[in-house]
């Protein structure tokens, strides 16, 4: 079935499935080993290369599994991993598996504008104030009413020396907010890019000389996962690659755009809205009786209609007129034998050039305005008791 419509064909809110948005995406690492080649790492040899692509690869490679930074021997010791997701996603979690001792401090950032600006999602450190100027996460969660980037404990080392950074976007959000009804939560979970800043190696923890030259250190990680749903605002159940290779929502409900964030041109009878589980808020096509291809939205009309309809048809064709192309334009009248949607619904008045007092007939009945003594729908005959004269000004005169 169609997730975006019920069995009766009525629209309903729909969302794409949960995916790893980072899978297969390019990762930009500020430092990667192997250039120049060392004994342990050679970027030109696939058997000994540790490229950043390994962070988001699908697996199955015969060579190494982990990305590695260069050996870091002096400040700055931070290394940045940036993953463009290709389009907006609504995040659920971010995780990164370390192949060696995990860093002592990590910052997780997001961008909502394809990398032009960045905002923190969370920090991970035992020295929150020193590293990030933040207080450790309060046990009660965010202090304010909305989500915020908190400072959590750093990823813990496992017995085998590895470690896992795991962040749930709900960790920074106060309980009780739900995505359907909270614009601030919708904004909080939305990201086009993810950036992980490995700020400080563990081995330097507590070392007063951590900004000076120290023993070489290498960050090493694999499996950067960004769990989330392609952001389609409740109007698509999947995202597809368009002709240019860009990931875009497969929009339904009369919406369009990469995130289904606007109504299609003819679907502007009411304002765009995000769908919820209770209401699809589908964009509605303007009602133009088949006589117009374009329409525009008018907020005043929408309010006056009790927030039901605000579409105004543009360029009504087939001699129709009106907000819904629902009556005939001047000089034409409604042919009752044709459906309103028929292209022949409006017929020319055809008022008689001499018998009629004007060219405009009644738009409903087709009756032309007749001069004295003239009769007929088009005013083309003298009435009973009248006869044709020679004067075009008074074409019918009383019969003597």
């Amino acid at each position: 079935g169609d997730p975006c419509h019920d069995e009766g064909g009525a629209p309903r809110g729909c969302v794409p499935g949960l995916v790893n948005a980072a899978l297969g995406r390019d990762v930009l690492a500020s430092s990667t080993c192997g250039r120049p080649a060392t004994r342990a790492c050679d970027a030109s040899d696939p058997r000994r290369a540790h490229p950043a692509a390994l962070l988001t690869a699908a697996g199955g490679t015969a060579g190494p599994l982990c990305w590695r930074s260069d050996s870091l021997v002096r400040a700055p010791l931070n290394v940045t991993l940036t993953v463009p997701l290709g389009k907006a996603f609504e995040l659920v979690f971010v995780s990164l598996r370390f192949c060696s001792q995990p860093p002592a401090s990590v910052a997780l950032l997001k961008s909502q504008d394809h990398g032009r600006s960045w905002a923190p999602l969370g920090f991970f450190s035992s020295r929150c104030a020193l590293d990030y100027g933040r207080l450790p996460r309060p046990s009660t969660g965010p202090a304010g009413p909305g989500p915020e980037a908190l400072c959590f404990p750093p990823p813990q080392a496992q017995p085998d020396g590895s470690g896992l950074l795991a962040f749930s976007v709900q960790d920074g959000s106060p309980p009780g907010l739900d995505l359907d009804n909270s614009p601030v939560l919708q904004d909080w979970v939305t990201a086009t890019d993810i950036r992980v800043v490995l700020t400080r190696p563990t081995m330097l923890l507590g070392d007063a000389r951590d900004t000076e030259a120290v023993a070489p250190y290498t960050y090493s990680a694999t499996e950067l996962q960004v769990g989330g749903r392609c952001k389609c605002n409740g109007h698509a159940s999947q995202c597809l690659l368009d002709a240019q290779g860009h990931l875009v929502c497969d929009c339904r409900h009369g919406t369009e755009g990469p995130d289904c964030s606007r109504c299609k041109p003819f679907y502007c009878d009411r304002p765009w809205q995000r769908a919820t589980t209770r209401d699809a808020h589908a964009c509605l096509a303007c009602s133009c009786n088949g006589h117009a291809r374009r329409c525009r939205f008018n907020m005043e009309l929408y309010r006056l209609s009790g927030r039901r309809s605000g579409g105004v048809c543009l360029n009504c064709r087939h001699n129709t007129a009106g907000r819904h192309c629902h009556y005939c334009r001047e000089g034409f009248y409604r042919d009752p034998g044709q459906a309103l949607s028929d292209r022949r619904a409006c017929r020319a008045c055809d008022c008689h050039p001499v018998g009629a007092a004007g060219k405009t007939c009644n738009q409903t009945t087709g009756q032309c305005p007749c001069k004295d003594g003239v009769t007929g729908l088009t005013c083309n005959r003298c009435a009973l008791g009248f006869q044709q004269s020679r004067s075009p000004v008074a074409p019918c005169v009383k019969t003597p």
Partner: peptide
């Protein structure tokens, strides 16, 4: 009784040339 349609040929346009419709 149905009256005949107006006969355009019977009208005298001498004084109303500017009103004469194009046929």
């Amino acid at each position: 009784e149905v009256m005949p349609t107006l006969d355009m040929a019977l009208f005298d346009w001498t004084d109303y040339e500017d009103l004469k419709p194009e046929v």
